[in-house]
């Protein structure tokens, strides 16, 4: 059995644009779930609203496609009511960091036994490319036509500070690393948060000089910096490029968690 067997083949091809990273992230997550040996009948995928949140509809398990920003609150109910179910949450940057920001920090605080995969494409894709809380300063979108002026959220730092047991960041280019990170998340009791930098060629790339899908992949490949290297540069007081995407595992700990089968 491979990860492809977890898909609802009758619903493919999916609605995502050509070159959208969401499909890649879906593959990697399913590959991790498959490697973990989870039973599809005992696994629930939960999501909110947005491009990323369409993912559970393509997976042949029980799946809950909820309201904007509330995926983690719904997932909390599912997991607490039946801790024997395996629950994975797909969410996006607008869903998680903007409208669902409060649920995010509280889910991390409760440290509830969920795995949260955030497809962070730096933009609201479904509604046509508006700026989100993770849009970097200077980036163009339909609501930041002169360049984003608000500072962006660092979701990883937020999750670490709020108390999640496992936090990692990768990009959609790092498929094997991402698969392993998700698998570590599935194995870790407590909340596991994996931020995945995703490419949105249609709405983000087109406006920000990353017009081709392969440009975005190349961008992820060249701008990513392993956390170990980043830490070393900082420790040595050497300069770190401001647009570096620091990837790797940021925390793994075993603080008390909720919703774990005793």
């Amino acid at each position: 059995m491979s990860f492809a067997d977890w898909l609802r083949a009758d619903r493919l091809p999916h609605i995502w644009c050509s070159g959208c990273s969401n499909g890649t992230i879906l593959n990697c997550t399913l590959a991790a779930v498959e490697a973990e040996g989870w039973d599809p009948d005992r696994t629930v995928f939960v999501s909110g609203i947005g491009c990323s949140s369409r993912a559970p509809g393509y997976i042949s398990t029980d799946s809950l496609h909820t309201t904007h920003g509330r995926a983690l609150a719904f997932a909390t109910g599912v997991k607490l009511a039946d801790p024997s179910l395996n629950v994975v949450v797909f969410t996006g940057d607008g869903d998680l960091a903007a409208i669902g920001g409060n649920h995010f920090i509280h889910a991390c605080r409760r440290n509830i036994d969920l795995t949260v995969v955030c497809m962070n494409n730096l933009i609201y894709g479904m509604t046509g490319g508006q700026g989100s809380p993770t849009t970097p300063i200077g980036a163009l979108s339909t609501t930041t036509p002169y360049g984003a002026s608000e500072p962006a959220f660092d979701l990883v730092a937020l999750a670490v500070a709020a108390g999640a047991n496992h936090v990692a960041r990768w990009t959609a280019y790092h498929v094997r690393e991402l698969e392993r990170a998700v698998q570590t998340g599935l194995e870790t009791p407590g909340l596991s948060f994996i931020e995945v930098r995703a490419g949105c060629p249609t709405n983000y790339g087109r406006k920000n000089r990353l017009r081709e899908v392969t440009d975005l992949a190349e961008y992820f490949r060249t701008k990513s910096m392993l956390k170990a290297k980043f830490d070393r540069l900082v420790a040595e007081g050497r300069p770190v490029p401001s647009d570096a995407i620091v990837v790797g595992e940021f925390v793994r700990r075993s603080n008390p968690a909720m919703g774990v089968v005793p």
Partner: peptide, 9 residues
């Protein structure tokens, strides 16, 4: 890697 990367399965 190609299968895992392919966004369109």
């Amino acid at each position: 890697v190609c299968q895992l990367t392919c966004p369109d399965q």
